[in-house]
Each structure stands twice: as C-alpha cells, then as structure tokens.
Nucleic acid binder design. Structure first.
Lengths: 394, 394
DNA sequence: TTGAAAGCGCTAACAT
DNA sequence: ATGTTAGCGCTTTCAA
C-alpha cells in the first residue's frame, strides 16, 4: 500500500494506487473519492545539464513516481510487474530516450556478454573466416566479440589474454601464435575458472575444450593423393615444431609413407616459421638436391602459394616437375595459377563450433568435462597436383 | 594520524604509523616505545569461498590494514602516496594475485577503453586489413576493439550501432553496408555526443570525421590508364548507388571520358550489389552487345575477379579482348591469372588513420570541427589491363 | 600522506 | 505487484 497522503483529507490509509495517468502514477482516496498524482520532478528538467547525459532508470522512476526497481523490472518484462505498469514504463522510457547502460548492468550482473578472441593475424582470409564464424554465432546469442591479434607473437598473446581477463570477458577463444611454446599459462587461468576454448592451433592442456581440424586425416589424404599421382619423393614444409598442427600433419604424412613402405627422408621434412623467406629457403635447398622432390606438401595454403610463386620464379613447372599442395582451403588457393590442391578444413565452421562449444560450457556452468571436437574436412583436388601423365592415362 | 589504540597503554594520541612490516601497517607508540601491528583478516582466509573469487582492492586493504582508497591510489602510482606504501601495496597485490576489475574501473570512470568497429564482412582481406590497421593502433593505445559485421545489411548495421552504444564504447568506427541508404541515424547519435568516425564507405553527414580513399582520383588514373592502353569503350561496374564510393569513382571515370571528349554510354554504366550473380549478369549483358566493351573497370578487386573468372568461362581473353581492372588492392589480385591491375588504396593505412583520428578527437574532447582525411593511393599496373599491341609497341 | 564516504547505474534479496 | 536496501569494485571528492 502506498504511503501517500491524500491532498484533501491528509489521510494515508485511505489512499490506493489507481493506474497511470499521463504516464504518472495515479492515486485514489477512497474517503474523498478523489484522484490525484504527485508532483515529481519534471522529466525534461531532470535531464541533468551535462551534455551527454543519458536517462537512467532512476530518472524514469522519478518522472513516473515509481521506484527504479519497478522500472528496471518492467523494462525487462519481469513477471512480477503488471501489464499496465510495463506498458507505461516502456512508453516513458521511449519518450525519455532511455537506453540501458550495459556497462552498469554487466557490472551488477558480473558478466559481460562478451568473449575475447585471440588470433594470430588478419593477413589472409584464413583466420578472418574463423573469426567470421565465431562472430556469426556470437551475435546470434547476443555476445559481443573483442578481437586481439597476437601477430604470431607469444608475448603479445599473453598480454592480450591478460587484458581480456581483466576486462572480465565471459570467455576466451584462443588460437595460439606460431611462436607460443609455453602453454602453461592456460592452465593457470583455468584454475581461476575462466572459460577458455582452444581452436585450430591448440595447446596440450587437458583442462580446456578444443576444436580442431582433421589434421592427421587430412595430411593422410593429401599424401595419398600425391602418391596416387605417382609422386615418389614428397617434401613436407611444416610450421614451427611447437605447433599442434605441425605435429599432427607430419604424423599423417608419415603414416602414409610407412603404410606404403616408402623411405622417410629427413631431409625432406622442413620446419619453418611460415614466412616467405623461410619457405623460399627450403624450396631452394630442395632444388639443389641431386634428386629433387617431385611434390611439396605445404602446411598452409599461404605457404603453398609462396612455394608456387618461388618455383615459378625458378622456372620449375608446377605441377609437372613438382606438384604443390596446400592445407586449409584459403580463398586464395582458387585464384592462383595453377589452382591449388588443398584440404578444406572449413575454417568458418571451426569458428562457429568453437563459439558453440563455449556457449555450451557457459550455460551449464557445472564443471563438466572438457571436450574435443574435430571438424570434418575434404580433399580439394585442383590443378597444382595433377601430374600430366596421370591426367592423360585416366 | 591513525586512530589506533596502543595495546600497552591504550592511548590513541601517542600512536604513529611506522612503515610496513611483513606487508602490514606497523604502528609505533611514542609513550611505550612499542612497535606493533593490528590483527586484520588473514589474507588467505579472506579469499572468500566462491570458486572464481578475485582479490579486490578492499581485500588488499584489509590484509594490510590500510584503506581501499590508498590501495587504489598506490596501484596507480598516485603522487599522493608515499613510495614505501606504493611498494608494499604492489608487493601484496602480487602475492594475492590481484588483478584490477576493468569492468568496475570503467564503470566508475564512465569510459570503456573500447571502440566498436562495424564493417560489412570478413570474406576477403579487404575489410579485414582495415580492421587490422585499426587494431594495430588501438592496441598501441590500450584500446580494445569490438567488431561487428553488418553482412552488408542495413538493419544489422543499425542493431550493431545500438548495442555498441548501449555498451558505452568510447567510439564508433563505421564503414557502411552496401544496403545502407538512410544515414540520418548517425546524426542522431552525434547529438548525444558519441564519437563516430566514418571510414571508406562514408555517409553524407557533416557532423562526423571521415577517412576515405582517393576514389575520384583513383578512378581517373584507372580510366586514363585504360585509355592509354587504347581502350575505346570502357564499361564500369559499380556498387549500389547509395554508396559514396560508387558515386565518387563514377565521377572520376566520367571526368576522364569528358576530358578526352569521349561519348558517355549509359549502357556501360552498371550498378550492382557486389554479388557474383549481379556482376556476371552485367558481364553477360555486355558480351551480348553488338559492340562489346574493350575494357571493364570494376568497383572492387573482388568484383574484378568475378568478372575475370566469368570472362574466362565465356572464353573471352583477358586482357586482349577485354581488359579488366579492379580497385582497392586486395591481396587476391596478385594471385589471379592474369594478375589484376588495380588502384592501391592502402586499406591498412585507412584503418590506422581512422583510429588515429578517433583518438585525436577523443583526447581533445572539445567540440572541434570534423575533419576529412584522404589516404593516398597509387595505380598498380599488372597484367589484366595490358593490351598486347601496346606492350609490343613500347 | 591517508581515510571516510559517496556515487557510477543497475540488479537482487528481502520486505510489504 | 511494488518498494527498500544493499551491493557489485572502483574512483573521486572532501576532510583530516
């Protein structure tokens, strides 16, 4: 019951609420049979003088003669609040151009509806399309995405993680930089209960969920395909040793060579830092061998393109003299001449799945076990690996 | 003076602070010549029981027997605080694994150190490299970047703007979607004092600063180059009419045709929505003309690549029968065969400049005038526009 | 040099 | 169905 005096009889006990009039709480005195409203602050006047002043729920409450709590609840369609009140409040909110302050709301709720994403770079469509996938799912569920680029640098990666955690993002989706060799920091944060999902380039930690491409299987298919084309000597250009994808793809490559009882030539296994210089150096080395490889399997499409360009420069014919295949399926692979054979890992889907996995863990905040999801891929045979003799024989 | 009783004489007036001992405030009673500390809550015990409990400045304060205010100031190297205190506080903060809650800090400060970026998509390196530029400058100045993709959709663009503003981002960097035709919402937000910078695809509003490419100049150079190559009939494939870049580039194209007293054929001016279908349709139309164009100037590298692919499919030789040029300088242009002649607008620099412009306005929050910055570009002549006869004659 | 108190805008627990 | 109160973690007066 409202504790409001009737302006006529000055009694409190006889006064009841009686809906809203002109967006203001209306009261009714049973005794005097009198309807009245209270003179609260004027809506416009109240709008403090500061230039960027934003209406708050308190302003609305004052303007209407009701409490901020009721306004807060009405705005969020809380079941406790009556339909009339909700309607009236929303109306006033609109008039006063109220907009919720998400900073305040999130602070009060101790959550941010924001996830942080750390990726190595935006220089090809490769990571950006993963980012796109993440963003797509995130926006569908009302999450904001803060991006951070590690520029393939470990220090930057760590700094980014720190800032994001300090910002209290609800979750962290990490694709490690190529120079990251120490992954223990991940476990540290996990202890503190922060949701982290690893994607594509993953850490060895068993405390977090992961989304990865079928690296080993993909590498097997790629290698098999090259053998199919009659290749006898396949060089493999990898990334840094510390990277999960390097390891897994090398495994696939070795599996198939072993299965086919082929020699494994250590000289043909090269580790690089993804830079064009390091890739060109490897290619040069191999061209100087007595017996050149007849195929090069590159860790990424980007490196495959570097290799093709370099081979062209060195007047080596691709694919006839040396077949080149990539991995990943970057948009660029379709454009280069010859078009690039690759393994489509579905980057965008990796992003989507990563976000979904996070969401899943976020909802049932129980300490459920971590899971590892593997995204299917497919061999994409294009020109860069088709040996002519074979082509004709088919 | 501390209001602490001496444990021996129980007097208050005689007690002075005397530095820190074992990270705790130490007191000294002049009268008893006695040093002591107070028994405040235990550091470890205090660490509430909740799983994700994070140490707060209050925890540090309690643990040390000083106020949260002092801790807050010490942590930020406030000049009021003595060096000893600062050192001691930082030490304890480290021990207690304190991390500032940026959500709370930002809320109290009414700023977020975050900017929102709205771009149309991440499907090529085109916008993502602008994003990269923004991110680069942003991280240098301690700003976080929230990205939103409009997917070239006006509604989504508006929604994104709303969410970002509700989140109280410090600034908004917008590159409009291709379907945005109503830009008035921008002015509305400006009235409320939100910093907005427009980049690349800009609105007609004169209330916000803008960063743009030299569209008209670039289009002039491109057109001149095509005339140079002996082209007589240049088709131009534009984006939607509502887009600033469409208008400006068309202007450049027309300027040069007029300057050279050439006929302007309306049939050769086509508006598209950037989709491959719409571009292919235009190309098909032109191929069906009695007199086909001998060159096609595309609004973007992406559309130029669509055009080239389609022409190849239709067995039209590029550049001999029809030269094709793009605009922008997307990474892909270098890879396609024939490599694409384009105008390098320096996407990454556009991003960097946009962020710098925002920073500039943000610092001197005076209502300084808006500025428009134009980023230099350069003609990049590659294979797709070099007519053979010319090549030989040179 | 330090501390106490108020407040940022919102939400939730607890009345009524 | 609505209001009261307290609190999220931090910063900033203002007072000492």
């Amino acid at each position: 019951m409202p504790r409001v005096k009737c302006p006529k009889c000055s009694k409190v006990e006889t006064v009841l609420k009686s809906g809203f009039i002109r967006q203001k709480q209306r009261y009714y005195c049973k005794e005097c049979n009198y309807n009245f409203t209270l003179n609260h602050e004027n809506r416009k006047a109240k709008n403090k003088t500061r230039k960027n002043y934003q209406t708050t729920i308190l302003d609305i409450g004052k303007a209407m003669g009701i409490s901020a709590t009721t306004v807060s609840r009405a705005l969020r369609d809380h079941p406790d609040i009556s339909a009339v009140t909700i309607k009236a409040v929303k109306q006033v909110a609109l008039e006063m151009e109220y907009r919720p302050n998400l900073m305040a709301r999130n602070f009060a709720n101790k959550q941010t509806q924001t996830i942080g994403v750390i990726i190595p770079d935006l220089e090809s469509t490769f990571f950006s399309s993963m980012l796109g996938g993440i963003q797509k799912v995130a926006s569908k569920f009302g999450f904001k995405v803060i991006i951070c680029l590690s520029n393939e640098d470990y220090e930057t990666e760590i700094e980014n993680v720190q800032v994001l955690i300090d910002s209290r993002v609800d979750g962290l989706l990490i694709c490690h930089s190529a120079t990251t060799t120490a992954f223990d920091y991940i476990d540290n944060y996990c202890k503190k209960g922060i949701s982290i999902v690893n994607f594509y380039r993953i850490s060895p930690s068993n405390k977090i969920s992961k989304v990865l491409a079928k690296n080993t299987e993909g590498a097997e298919k790629i290698t098999e395909h090259l053998l199919d084309q009659g290749c006898k000597k396949i060089g493999i250009i990898l990334g840094p040793k510390s990277l999960s994808i390097t390891e897994e793809r090398l495994l696939g490559y070795l599996n198939i060579l072993k299965k086919n009882k082929m020699d494994i030539d250590k000289e043909l296994i090269a580790y690089t830092d993804y830079s064009s210089t390091s890739i060109n150096a490897v290619v040069d080395d191999w061209l100087n061998l007595n017996e050149r490889p007849d195929a090069i399997f590159c860790i990424s499409d980007r490196s495959a393109i570097f290799a093709i360009k370099h081979l062209k420069k060195r007047k080596v014919k691709v694919p006839d003299e040396i077949a080149v295949v990539g991995f990943g399926n970057d948009l660029m692979g379709e454009l280069i001449e010859p078009s690039l054979t690759t393994y489509n890992i579905q980057t965008s889907k990796i992003g989507e799945t990563t976000m979904q996995l996070f969401l899943q863990e976020y909802k049932n905040d129980s300490d459920n076990e971590t899971q590892i999801q593997t995204i299917d891929g497919e061999l994409l045979i294009r020109e860069s690996s088709i040996k002519k003799k074979r082509k004709q024989s088919k």
